[in-house]
């Protein structure tokens, strides 16, 4: 219980930090950048929207603290402002339509990368210091250093533009409307294959190395030697003794992996014009649509924070030691 409260406390602190960064950043910059934006959109906005935006970005004579309270109050009521690119659509509406795409793509890709990378890590540890291990670790180290956008562009160039095997953009075929049917699901999967591969491949290395090193660490422990001596088969030692225990620290790897995946997803969505939050963030940055940018940053951060919180809870559930000492 104490552990849950502890983690919940951390979730609240980090959420508050994300919210506050969002508030401070535009006000911190020399010559409030929102002024330029307001000038640009002067003619296109109604006076009420303009006033709201001025308030949102601190172009007002109110003291900072009042602005901050106002901002927090608005957030608690779910008011994220109005997008300038898609005026007069609200930021919340854009988030609601784009977030599911990102969660689906990033979630599937992360799970695949975690499972595949961990399995490869077990295999590499099994063959440690042999050629297979060397090829696996060096190979995934190389793929881990490939920028997501580069891999995505290469795949597009070869598989979509040259061979026409995959679509070049978007998340479903333009001739269909989103609905819960099998053909539609098919086009969604088909469209998300290349983006998913682009996220999975660079992510493999982290999981593989983490698991491999944990395994090798574990293989030096006495109970492994004991298991070998009492005649457990090598496969049994690897999978039932070493891997099960080496798997635990890999769960904490999720926190790091999520950050990496989020960065990757943003870039991959831009490469494939995939209509998730990353693509919208790119649109917002290009159009200097600060309200949309703020809202997207907030929702991306909060999603990551909540995911981390859930992983922490899971870790506490499967490893009682974490409940006593707490995982950092």
């Amino acid at each position: 219980m104490r552990y849950i409260l502890d983690r919940l406390g951390f979730l609240l602190i980090s959420a508050w930090a994300a919210v506050t960064i969002n508030f401070i950043l535009p006000r911190l910059m020399p010559g409030n950048p929102a002024l330029l934006m307001v000038d640009r959109y002067q003619g296109e906005l109604g006076p009420r929207a303009l006033a709201a935006i001025k308030l949102q970005f601190g172009i007002t004579s109110q003291p900072m603290l009042t602005q901050y309270w106002h901002y927090l109050g608005n957030l608690l009521q779910g008011h994220l402002g109005i997008s300038l690119t898609y005026y007069p659509v609200s930021v919340s509406h854009i988030i609601a339509t784009s977030l599911p795409w990102t969660l689906g793509l990033a979630g599937t890709a992360t799970v695949i990368a975690a499972i595949l990378g961990t399995l490869l890590g077990i295999f590499a540890a099994w063959k440690r210091n042999l050629r297979t291990d060397s090829i696996l670790t060096t190979g995934t180290t190389f793929t881990g250093a490939i920028p997501h956008q580069y891999l995505g562009l290469l795949l597009l160039l070869i598989l979509s533009y040259h061979f026409h095997w995959f679509p070049v953009a978007h998340s479903y075929s333009a001739s269909m409307t989103p609905q819960w049917t099998f053909p539609f699901a098919e086009t969604v999967v088909y469209h998300s294959l290349l983006p998913a591969v682009t996220i999975v491949v660079p992510g493999l290395g982290g999981w593989l190395l983490h698991m491999r090193n944990n395994m090798i660490q574990t293989l030096g422990d006495d109970y492994i030697v004991f298991a070998q001596a009492k005649g457990v088969s090598p496969r049994g030692v690897m999978l039932r003794h070493a891997a099960r225990n080496a798997l635990l620290p890999s769960v904490t790897n999720f926190a790091m992996a999520i950050g990496f995946v989020v960065g990757g997803v943003l870039l991959v969505e831009v490469v494939f014009s995939y209509p998730g939050v990353g693509y919208q963030l790119f649109t917002a940055v290009q159009n200097e649509d600060y309200p949309l940018m703020q809202g997207l940053f907030l929702i991306i951060s909060l999603s990551v924070l909540v995911l981390n919180f859930l992983v922490d809870l899971l870790y506490g559930l499967i490893d009682p030691r974490a409940r006593r000492t707490g995982v950092a």
Binding site: S14, L266, L281, F297, L305
Partner: peptide
């Protein structure tokens, strides 16, 4: 720990855009 969990690239994007 707070800075570890706040995703890096989105933060950089927002900062660079301002």
């Amino acid at each position: 720990n707070v800075f570890i969990v706040i995703p890096g690239l989105p933060l950089m994007i927002v900062a660079a855009a301002y």
